[in-house]
Amino acid sequence: MTEKATSPAIMRSMLGRARGLGSARSGLHHWWAQRLTAFALVPLVLWFIYSAIRLSGMKRGDVINWAVDPVVGTLLVALVLALFHHMRLGLQVVIEDYIHDERPRMVWLLVMKGVTGLLGLAALVAVIKLAI
């Protein structure tokens, strides 16, 4: 009890601590989404490597003919969504781990989310345009 009087941190209750910190809220969602996208990427990446080998050296028309197939289009959209989501979650943790000061950390996180978000959207638009 005497500890409580001297330490400002103890003013927060255990429940408050559990609710307030990342691991009890968005942290679980982050962890789960990272695993879920990893799961999805296992077959998608295998298909992607197979496709990349098949596509190598092909003309643009052949690539378009390939991408216009609905199954291929669906898999490409799934790949882009899962890949960029997985990548953003991963890069977020890397930034959070290595940049300790709050302000530069926030700046880096926002820049990373902005750049990867735009890249992902660009990939998505391209894949959909190829499909239609």
């Binding site: 960029f84 990548m87 991963g90 890249l119 660009a122 990939a123 391209a126």
Partner: peptide, 19 residues
């Protein structure tokens, strides 16, 4: 993981160029 993230630049470039 970080290297592959950089590699997506090439993937995006390829897809956009194909369009």
């Amino acid at each position: 993981g970080v290297a592959l993230s950089c590699g997506t630049l090439l993937l995006v470039w390829f897809l956009i160029a194909a369009v």
